[in-house]
Design a binder for these strands. Structure first.
Length: 452
RNA sequence: GUGGACGUAGCUCAGUUGGUUAGAGCAUCAGAUUGUGGUUCUGAGGGUCGUGGGUUCGAGCCCCAUCUUCCACCCCA
């Protein structure tokens, strides 16, 4: 056997990485809680019938499927097996899959438990998801999503709340972001005005790439998709919109004046912006090309990008009017946003924005001088623990150089020196490891000193 | 899923047209220092060169396969 390894696109997390990840999760959670969202969890695996067909054909391919237990070949269809038809064979050999995101399992949860739920239901969920994608930087096969959604209300106040949550989280983490906002109804309106309402997906996928491939690139792609030149000509004024949020929307309003749904979208987005203005959020940019792949969005579309780092979106979400409809529960409108913890980690790492305190596990290290001093040290240690101070005793009477080195490596801010003289006098020496200063403390003063 | 690049010590990398025993810096450990650390000096350990085959008298270097990581597309957090 060669050295052991882990599957492609998965990772181990060291103590330092865990400390940093927990800092991100704790920050996100604290804001979710402030806005009165409650946690739920769902299983890692779901029935394939729950997952399949919710993410498009591409998404189905990216689902990790789980082989049935026992002799999974016992019930295979001979014809499908002989013809190597993976699609048909799949139904026989696999009925479970790993969850691909948290939104679809949430929809399933709401349908299954709707009799016990009080609506509007505000929930958050922080769990890993799995995608059989080809890994790249910032792109993993197992990664965590932090979802916050509210379901059972179509109030635009909740769109504003999602934007506010995003704003607060990234503000607290110290990441400068641009929050992009669009509305699916506007995209529908655009397709309608172009006379190609049925091809909304092709059109939005193409214009979504505007900032990446430019106007010419978008037009080229639309031609390849089979749209006529006259249709593309009609689209140009929309690609060229510029100015402030309200200026863009006013221009667009004229273009879309014959599209009822388009005007509804503009009205919605204006109201949401109005709410965020009251909340004092000023980094929201209306981006009329923002589409995002997920076809279940019906209203607001939200995406967050970090300003100072080259990285895909670190957060995204939107309004979906009929997510639970697929599972038989109609008229359940929801809005939510998802935070990509792994990408946020990469951004913070690149910007060196992790606070030093996240690395600190131990507040004080008791220096070990030998068997007789250990007795006092253990008693002091216990008192510190009871006072809720993370403390540890060095395991052997090694040289002080070595013990101090250990404290330095673990970023322990204080060491406590209890040798023979300190033990006899009851005056322990507390050394500040960054300044090198030492002061004598009696046990109760020591606890007070280390308590904050 | 399609196309491409990389892989040498824990980390970052040298390694000539294929030629004896594969190197450096950082890190680790030990000593200089038996109650005071991050500096300095000295020394030590650590690699079947990602893995498996092939070509050759001889492979870290050439060929094939495979795995990983990275890049572009696709899609997305």
């Amino acid at each position: 056997m060669s050295s052991p390894s882990i599957p492609k696109g998965t990772r181990d997390f060291s103590p330092l990485e865990m400390a940093r990840r927990n800092y991100i999760f704790d920050t996100i959670k604290s804001i979710f809680k402030l806005h009165a969202y409650q946690p739920i969890e769902t299983p890692s695996m779901e029935n394939l019938t729950t997952l399949m067909g919710k993410y498009g054909d591409e998404g189905d391919k990216l689902l990790f499927k789980i082989l049935n237990s026992g002799n999974y070949l016992a019930n295979v269809d001979n014809e499908a097996y002989e013809s190597k038809d993976a699609g048909k064979l799949l139904k026989n050999i696999s009925e479970k899959g790993l969850r691909y995101d948290l939104t679809v399992p949430f929809a399933r949860y709401v349908v299954q438990h709707h009799n016990e739920i009080t609506f509007p239901f505000k929930r958050y969920q922080i769990q890993p998801v799995w995608r059989a994608d080809r890994p790249q930087k910032g792109r993993y096969r197992e990664f965590y999503q932090c979802d916050v959604d509210v379901i059972g209300s179509n109030s635009l106040l909740y769109e504003a709340e999602m934007l506010s949550i995003a704003n607060e989280i990234f503000d607290k983490l110290g990441i400068k972001v641009n929050i992009l906002l669009n509305n699916r109804k506007i995209l529908s309106g655009i397709a309608e005005i172009l006379g190609e309402a049925a091809r909304i997906t092709d059109i939005t996928v193409a214009i979504d790439k505007l900032d990446k491939i430019g106007k010419e690139g978008v037009n080229k792609e639309l031609i390849e998709k089979g749209l006529s030149q006259s249709t593309i000509d009609k689209l140009q004024p929309i690609l060229e919109l510029s100015g402030s949020n309200t200026e863009k929307l006013d221009q667009l309003k004229k273009i879309l004046e014959k599209s009822e749904i388009g005007l509804k979208g503009i009205e919605e987005i204006k109201e949401v912006i109005n709410y965020t203005r009251i909340l004092g959020i000023n980094n929201i940019a209306v981006d009329l090309t923002l589409a995002r792949g997920l076809n279940y969005y019906t209203g607001a579309i939200i995406e967050v990008k970090a300003n100072d780092v080259q990285m895909g979106s670190i957060s995204g979400g939107g309004r979906y009017d009929d997510l639970t409809g697929i599972f038989g529960l109609k008229n359940m409108s929801g809005v939510g946003i998802s935070f990509g913890a792994d990408r946020i980690y990469d951004v913070l790492n690149e910007l060196h924005k992790f606070p030093d305190s996240t690395e600190q596990a131990t507040k004080v290290l008791l220096v070990n001088f030998g068997k007789s001093e250990e007795v006092i040290c253990l008693q002091v240690l216990q008192k510190l623990h009871r006072a809720n101070i993370p403390a540890e005793l060095y395991p052997s009477a090694a040289k002080m150089k070595k013990q101090f080195g250990y404290a330095d490596d673990k970023k322990i801010p204080y060491t406590l020196i209890i040798g023979e003289t300190e033990a006899n006098s009851g005056q322990y020496q507390l050394k500040n490891m960054s300044t090198g200063e030492q002061e004598k403390y009696e046990i109760n003063d020591l606890i007070k000193k280390l308590s904050y």
